Amino acid sequence: MLYYFYSHWGINVFQYLTFRAGVSFFVAFVLCAFIMPIFIKWAKSKKANQPISNFVPAHQNKVNTPTMGGIIFIFTAVVASVLSVKLDNTYVILGLIVLVAFGLIGARDDYIKIVAKKNSGMSASVKFFLLFIVAVGVSTSLSVNGLDSSLYVPFMKKPLFYLGNYPGVSIAFWTLVFLATTNAVNITDGLDGLATVPSICALISLSVFVYIAGNAEFSRYLLWPRVVDAGEMFVVSTALIGSLFGFLWYNCHPAQVFMGDSGSLGVGGFIAYMAIISNNEILLVLIGSIFVLETLSVILQIGSYKTRKKKIFLMAPIHHHFEVKGWAENKIIVRFWIIAILSNIIALMSLKIR
């Protein structure tokens, strides 16, 4: 909406992406920081608490902590985005659909957990089906919209593959990226703030890539694939970053609220979307290093137990392994944050080292 102050009233400052991105960040942060304590108070009165798994006895002190905080930071991110972006942009519309749709699937899962007072929500098959439908729908829309389906490898100038002649393959690949990323962020969300800061780091990096992809001069100078109109997603991404900072104010250790599946699936889907439209599907492994590490630990643990009847880790995901080893929760969280920050710095270096 702010852009129309420029187009209709000629107020120049509102034409700039960077200015509107700054506005969206602070609007989202302030809104989230203001609404979250009201939500926490309401959620406690309704006993909308996070059911704690019996397999993690160390977390029983978190039993009265409310969940579904993701609903609030997704809501504030959407409000800030609508105020700041050009709403006639296809990438923006699809991005907001991704954020809301994946968030609603997670909210349904959270609601079932709260009502049943169990750590297991909707069945895995139903959850996967709903995620799959949204992922396929958005991937198909991107393909129809003409998004470049070239597969770029970090630190290489030219694409490794071009899938443009096989739209079905690109849709299947993008769907896989959506499903893998949403579940990876969901798995990581197990300690106070553990998923929040790596998500912020990933979104900051992807915001830089999307801004460059949408800018003709920067993309040409850095030899980065140009994606016309994608730059407007920079504003939406900064809105979500601002919301996540507002959420982190209450989610840092000891957490007053958890994001729940509503938050982890929503953020995971949006991270996947940003990686896809900026041609960073492969680099996402580095950008989301913590999410990859957590997911691999679960895959290796299950695979080892099924094939050898032996565990690799004391407990999976890997953050629980360190808990069982006796590491303080805050130490695990901060060290994982450091890994996320360092890996994203390396990812950003790939812009020039190519």
Rank of each mutant, 00 (worst) to 15 (best):
S24C: 13
N330M: 01
F291G: 03
I276E: 02
K118E: 00
L142F: 09
F19H: 05
F73M: 13
L293H: 05
F178A: 09
I345T: 10
V138H: 11
S207D: 12
N12C: 02
D192L: 02
I74M: 07
T67W: 01
G260R: 06
G246F: 12
K158N: 08
L206M: 00
E294C: 00
N251G: 09
H8V: 02
I346V: 15
G164R: 11
P159Y: 05
L342N: 02
G146E: 03
S205P: 01
F128G: 04
P198V: 05
S237N: 13
S278W: 00
L130C: 11
L223A: 11
E232N: 07
I11S: 11
V324P: 00
A195P: 00
V82D: 08
V79G: 05
V100K: 04
G326P: 06
L131H: 13
A275D: 03
S262G: 15
I341C: 05
N344F: 03
L83A: 11
P37S: 14
D148H: 12
G10T: 02
N119F: 14
A80S: 12
K62N: 01
I353Q: 15
Y305F: 14
N186I: 07
L314V: 08
S123G: 13
F313V: 09
G263M: 15
C32F: 09
G268Q: 12
L300V: 05
L194E: 00
H59P: 00
T18W: 15
A135N: 06
G231N: 10
